[in-house]
Design a protein around this nucleic acid. Structure first.
Length: 398
RNA sequence: GGCGGGAUUCCUGAGCGGUCAAAGGGGCGCGGCUGUAAACCGUGUGGCUCUGCCUUCGAAGGUUCGAAUCCUUCUCCCGCCA
């Protein structure tokens, strides 16, 4: 195992801040002296069930801690999720129900294991309901640790306060609860995105108030989403989910603006991306590396081939779903109805698509709404560039 | 407690009694182009048994030949004063 200085150097690469400066190295030394691993905290809010690449940046960093033998404490914020952290938002989030939180927490945990090592020595998963379901007395003690002025230093609170948009007491409580998590699990280090800096630092204050050594704070950069500008987030639709299908991951990655490529390579710590290559080849390598990480080598190559086939040579994908339709009494097939059921669109929309020339049968554009059953049987119905279905006639044809 | 302002289609935001399925922007769809599902340009964007019909403008009532637009009550949100 590398010595503390080497570990610190490795662990702080690709991070934004290590606060207070040099604290991580000092803590690593102290822990080494006590012959114990660090307790490294990450809180996850189970507000949405699916993890995306943006989450994996910090998970990847946690994984590095694990690889040095440190213990990651993953906190599923089942209690804080009921509050809704307003970080970076102008509005508080709607609270979730208990069942939603439980379901989300389960999938979160599951998906986090695609990056983290699931070894009980190296990983501890806790829920903050274990300690946040506290009595008033205890809440008072927590509330006394911080002043409103301190909380208002946080940017989004300050902005909202200045703009006179509402800030609920509950939201102000959020950073305190997150800080209390650090007390409860005796965190040595807490990780988070740069948008979490305030909360992470406040955790130190709370720990101090409880007579505990203050945690080190390590912030990682925010991964830009597929638009190359906004933070990757599901609500913006610019994300790649860790459970996305290989072809989906590959194709979506190719839509990344060229300028965002270096960030992705660095933040995601991708391997096998050539440093000197044209943007086209670089991006293809990035896409392959991402698919490889979550689905393996074979899937990466297959995804690339599938993409080339559909988007470059405009051939059919290798798997085309089948659909069975029935012709009407007159032996005609009503295309809008078929499109509506096959692709989950409305019939009105299907008619528009038909009129726009977006509908093809075996590659040939069709504008007709009604076709003789013989004209569609066995053919591939295509809507747009990405939706295909092979049409079969039902047994009730006459 | 008092006084004002507001709730519109996925989001934002016009609309101020008929010409409103409702401007503009965003998003999204489709087409073109491209190494790409990017950028850019064009176009579309409530539903349906589609030259017409049905449903929508916080909720419920009402006025009117006719209401997103006027009135009443209710619900929720915001601001100011205390």
């Amino acid at each position: 195992m590398p010595d503390p200085a080497e570990q610190a150097a490795f662990l702080t690469r690709n991070t934004v801040e290590d606060l207070p400066k040099g604290a991580l190295e000092a803590r690593l030394k102290a822990a080494a002296g006590e012959r114990r691993p660090l307790r490294v905290k990450l809180g996850l809010d189970p507000t949405a069930p699916d993890l995306h690449l943006g989450h994996t940046v910090v998970l990847q960093k946690l994984r590095e801690f694990q690889d040095f033998g440190h213990r990651v404490v993953l906190i599923v914020g089942d209690y804080t999720a009921r509050v809704g952290d307003p970080s970076g938002r102008s509005q508080s989030r709607p609270p979730l129900t208990g069942e939603q939180i439980d379901a989300n927490a389960a999938t979160y945990q599951d998906q986090a294991f695609r990056v983290l090592r699931d070894d009980p020595e190296l990983l501890e998963v806790r829920r903050n309901s274990e300690w946040l379901d506290m009595g008033m007395e205890e809440l008072f003690r927590l509330a006394r640790t911080t002043t409103v002025a301190q909380l208002l230093e946080r940017n989004d609170f300050a902005n909202r306060f200045a703009a006179r948009t509402p800030i609920s007491i509950l939201e102000l409580l959020y950073p305190l609860m997150q800080g209390y998590d650090s007390v409860a699990i005796r965190a040595d280090v807490e990780l988070g995105g740069t948008d979490q800096t305030f909360n992470l630092m406040l955790g130190r204050d709370v720990q101090r108030a409880y007579g505990m050594a203050e945690q080190c704070v390590l912030t990682v950069p925010i991964l830009p989403g597929l638009d190359g500008v906004e933070k990757m987030s599901k609500s913006l639709g610019n994300q790649i989910g860790v459970t996305d299908a290989p072809e989906e991951m590959y194709g979506r990655t190719l839509s990344l603006p060229d300028a965002a490529m270096p960030d992705w390579v660095a933040l995601l710590a991708l391997d096998g991306v050539p440093a000197q290559a044209g943007p086209r080849d670089t991006k293809r390598a990035i896409a392959r590396a991402i698919v490889r990480r979550f689905h393996g080598d074979a899937a990466a190559l297959a995804a690339e081939e599938a993409f080339d086939r559909v988007f470059i040579t405009h051939e059919l994908p290798d798997v085309v779903p089948d659909i069975t339709v029935d012709a009407g009494d007159d032996g005609m097939v009503h295309l809008p109805a078929v499109i509506a059921t096959a692709f989950g669109r409305s019939r009105s929309e299907a008619r528009r698509l038909l009129a726009e020339g977006a509908v093809k049968l075996d590659g040939a554009p069709t504008g007709e709404a009604d076709l003789a059953s013989g004209a569609v049987a066995g053919k591939v119905l295509q809507v747009g560039k990405r939706s295909y279905v092979r049409v079969h006639l039902g047994s009730t044809e006459r």
